[in-house]
Design a protein around this nucleic acid. Sequence first.
DNA 1: ACCTGAACACCGTTCAAGT
DNA 2: ACCTGAACACCGTTCAAGT
Lengths: 199, 199
Amino acid sequence: MSTQTFRRRAGRPPQIDADEIVTAAVALIDAEGLEALTMRRLGTELGVTAMSLYRHLPNRDAVLAAVVSRLVREVAVEVADGMPWPQALHRFAESYRRMLLAHPHAVPLLATHPVDEVDGLALVAPVLERFRGAGVPDEDALTAVQSVGVYVLGHALAQVGTPPGASRDPGPAEVAYYDQWFTVGLDAFVLGLHHRLTP
Amino acid sequence: MSTQTFRRRAGRPPQIDADEIVTAAVALIDAEGLEALTMRRLGTELGVTAMSLYRHLPNRDAVLAAVVSRLVREVAVEVADGMPWPQALHRFAESYRRMLLAHPHAVPLLATHPVDEVDGLALVAPVLERFRGAGVPDEDALTAVQSVGVYVLGHALAQVGTPPGASRDPGPAEVAYYDQWFTVGLDAFVLGLHHRLTP
DNA sequence: ACCTGAACACCGTTCAAGT
DNA sequence: ACCTGAACACCGTTCAAGT
């Protein structure tokens, strides 16, 4: 029979893999929030019992860490070749924020779980390159990027962490308020870094 | 008997009150982290069953909100009368950070639970006053203070959210690294705000 | 008025067992 | 190799009952 040629080494074929688990976890968080992400519920979502998840990921915290990694890799920073670093820093901040606001229920998770160093560096690599082009030492450049990064995350936390009321969606006035605040703060921050790093 | 004169209206005298619960909650978080704060454990710490806590606070989330309020009120911003606002802003950032680093296990809680508006305004009132002294509109001043606030919180999250390893304490090199980063970022941010607000 | 014991409906995780 | 059922040791919270 045809399955002989391409058959797996032994046993049952898997019904799920780690990637599918992470995809389902992100979807569940986006739809119902972090507290809805239980192992039992996640299993149900995949048509499987909770216990089978442990065959693919060691525990719930590993699921959360994998979600963080997936979301960080979702950030696409568009940096043109000759772009001055202050502009590249702006782009980074805006791309990062776009991801965070696209997954408001995951923001507390991003705030709590440190980003994997490899993921983080890959994300900011094109930005660091623009600092290098201006002769700024890598160490200073990294401090600048990380500083803007914590500003963006802190701002997103403030925006999504509205009073206890559930996930009622924002309303244009609220969105405009946070957009304005974000821009004013970011402009000032990048301006100040510019003054300190390229005098 | 003497108890007649000052006796309570009826029933048993309370063994605990809300303030004691919050104090015990903070102590427990500081000592063993957020996940150690269960209603049962908190009761035990106070020599009482978990169920009796519900007589004083409606649920676990109310305990957490009360902890946030308590910690925010612990921040003391020392702002002298004639102090220029950039310096007052520095003081605010340092005081806020001092509180956060004194309660590292509570930082994710502060990041997640929005600060009560009254608590927040009381905290920054002396700082806003310094902006007023320089003729900066309240709206701009509040944006500046909030921007620095989210930077401080974001930075503290990065500092306390070290790789999965438990609460191994920091080591002087790590402390120095974060202190340096914090200062460089803060200086640049305040400088940039200064350029934008008082040209 | 305040505290408790028992109970309910959940969790994450382990482990032996099925296919 | 992968999935499952039953079980363990927990949770937060409710409610009737004690003092």
